[in-house]
Design a protein around this nucleic acid. Structure first.
Length: 400
DNA sequence: ATTCCACAGGAAACAGTGGTCC
DNA sequence: GGACCACTGTTTCCTGTGGAAT
């Protein structure tokens, strides 16, 4: 039997590849994604139109589940408008930031500042008061006399950050124009969460929600069309079987009409098929791809946890479907074994809720009468997966 | 009807870090 | 060099809760 490495290398070299253009198999490649978004494109354009007449457009709120192409559409529309006004002396600047990628309010504002070409000197990454950072950004806009469009992705997350720190940054952003004399600022908020507005300050709602656009989910049919177009560009003809395509669309459509997931799925399925030196992508490959994506997600999220969270997950594994109290005492024992100081129960309760949010564990509140109230947690992923992942961790090796 | 358990989870305070500004 | 700021991760303190036991 030939060496497996040689076999793979041979296959790669022989040029037998069913994927002819890998780059197209990414969500960020936009033509097909937004082809089914004509009316939304129109709406976005319309609400930003006043810019061409040199007046301030309405602030805009865009909703849609992940993978509906909302960010891509907004960016495309703005870059088109930018092209139009390139020659005018009232230029438009697109500034994009994702609230989730910036962990703090300060970080988000600094990222805005950097995109406005504010240097480290003019806007340091720490040390200033938030109001000071905001002032500097506005001054810069005013001095340069530019029309700025702030696109804030996952704005619900920003709202959460702001409410936690007690800073009404969203309010200030929506009212920034009152402080600008020469430039202007338009806010485009993008959110996955349709209900997030309810949690906002009413003053913010009235100015932020001047215009609202909702991106509906792609249906299975649309996803199939998108996939088909991609496949035509990316794969050699007839290499993806019809049932495989259908399954891909069904899996992604069945979830939330997420085009991103569908495209990921077909890409991974294609790679698997290639690795197996198959001439076609089959249903089997798609199923395998789906499993692989799922497993990868679990593994990376497990690996990314800090030590105490990992200890907690192990404690849940060892205590098996038990209450916070039991988990806490198991956790304390584990801490002793690895020689780390244990945290308080309050902190542990909080951590458990945080881990629960990620979906790795699930908790159920139960009332036991005179035996009090507690929450019972259990793992939602296989214990083998946890053991396998934590085996590589030097501190945890002995207790896994 | 009242008591009481075993926590859940909110609020506030604190320590420590890494920075600016004057 | 001291006042001030943001931020994270934590502790401390506290109130609330549903139903079995009494």
């Amino acid at each position: 039997m030939s060496d497996p490495i040689d076999r793979l290398l041979d296959a790669a070299e022989s040029g037998k590849s069913i994927i002819k253009n890998r780059d197209i198999l990414h969500f960020t490649f936009i033509p097909e994604i937004i082809r089914h978004r004509d009316s939304e494109q129109e709406q976005v354009t319309q609400s930003l139109l006043p810019i061409l007449k040199k007046s301030r457009p309405s602030n805009l709120l865009v909703y849609g589940k992940p993978g509906t192409g909302k960010t891509l559409v907004v960016k495309k529309v703005i870059s088109k408008i930018q092209e139009r006004v390139r020659k005018s002396n009232f230029p438009i600047k697109l500034i994009y930031s994702n609230s989730k990628e910036e962990t703090t309010l300060y970080g988000l504002l600094v990222s805005f500042g950097r995109q406005l070409d504010l240097t480290e000197k003019e806007l340091p990454t720490t040390g200033l008061a938030i109001s000071e950072v905001f002032k500097r950004i506005l001054n810069n806009i005013d001095e340069k006399k530019i029309n700025v469009i702030f696109v804030i992705d996952e704005i619900d997350y920003l709202a959460q950050l702001a409410s936690k720190t007690g800073k009404d940054i969203l309010y200030q952003l929506t009212r920034a124009n009152e402080r600008l004399t020469q430039g202007s600022l338009t806010l485009v908020g993008i959110s996955n969460d349709l209900t997030f507005k309810e949690k906002l300050d009413p003053r913010v709602i009235s100015s932020l929600g001047e215009e609202e656009i909702v991106f509906t989910n792609y249906n299975v049919d649309q996803i199939k069309k998108i996939l088909n177009e991609r496949i035509n560009h990316a794969f050699i003809p007839n290499s993806v079987q019809e049932p495989a395509l259908n399954l891909c669309a069904a899996l992604a459509g069945g979830e939330h009409g997420d085009a991103r997931r569908a495209i990921d799925l077909i890409r991974v399925a294609g790679e698997i098929a290639e690795r197996k030196q198959s001439e076609n992508v089959t249903e089997e490959h798609v199923r395998e791809a789906s499993l692989k994506i799922e497993e990868n997600k679990e593994e990376t999220s497990l690996k990314s946890y800090p030590l105490h969270e990992k200890l907690l997950i192990l404690a849940i594994l060892k205590a098996g479907g038990s209450s916070t109290g039991e988990i806490y005492s198991t956790y304390k024992t584990l801490c002793k074994v690895v020689g780390r100081e244990e945290l308080t129960q309050r902190r542990i309760t909080q951590m458990l809720s945080e881990i629960e949010l990620s979906g790795i564990i699930s908790g159920r509140l139960i009332h036991q009468g005179i035996h009090g109230r507690t929450k019972k947690y259990k793992l939602t992923i296989s214990p083998e997966m946890v053991k396998k992942t934590f085996k590589d961790d030097l501190t945890l090796q002995d207790i896994v």
